[in-house]
Design a protein around this nucleic acid. Sequence first.
DNA 1: AGCGTTACGCCCCGAATTCG
DNA 2: CGAATTCGGGGCGTAACGCT
Length: 252
Amino acid sequence: CENLFCPAQVRRRIVHFASRGALDIEGLGWKTVDWLADAGLVEDPADLYHLRAEDLVKLPGMGEKSAANLLAGIERSKSAPLDRLLVAIGIRHVGARIAQILAEHFGSLDALEKADEEALLGIDAIGPEIASSVVSFFSSKVGKTFVQKLRHAGVNPESKAPRRAASTGPFVGKTFVLTGTLEELTREDAARFIQEAGGKVTSSVSSKTDAVVAGSDPGSKLDKARALGIEVWDENRLKTALKKAGVVPAAR
DNA sequence: AGCGTTACGCCCCGAATTCG
DNA sequence: CGAATTCGGGGCGTAACGCT
């Protein structure tokens, strides 16, 4: 089903909106979204912001605690950083990476909405396809009303000023890939720290990769790294290097 | 209390697509 | 073309929660 309004698509969008890479709203999985949609409470993700506890508790499998948690999660999502919101919105070709770039470049949803293709094309890593995808989303009827609804609900985040990445040190200009499970750091944290240290984290191993950081239960990326003769780091080596670079990984 | 559902927090993979 | 990403699919163990 391609129609953006068919039930399956609506639910997909909502689940995506709330999913982990996006706004990370607790309590919104497929099943819950099914109930919400069946009950006619939501027609697009922005409707989440109008849900009320009274309505929620009536749903099967949803008690006071779940309702409260869900509402708290939705409330919290209003203050999510811009890049997360962009991922949540679900514009074609805009995932974590591009969202981050767009957020840093434009700083606010308003600014991005007004951007034309030319402005987008000027940005590194943005080509015609992504540019037109972004522009056509914000000029489409669906996109406009959606953004409008979000704004009404009080969602219009600005991106935090990007932390100035280190300009010297062992990470600068190097590309890292993470694989396996790290112990003390989450992948997200590890990636952030590496970036702050001036390094880059990508998602696939190639000859351009400088080092692969392998945790336990590593996947095929480690094999590829070995095959290509790329340095393999363990978590300790990463932490030591981060410390040396002046980025102290706080224990969580 | 026990059961079923869901979420969470990690993760992997492949196909398709895009950028340069 | 090579490198990198998105996207959508899946997995697994643990924990929280609502219901009966």
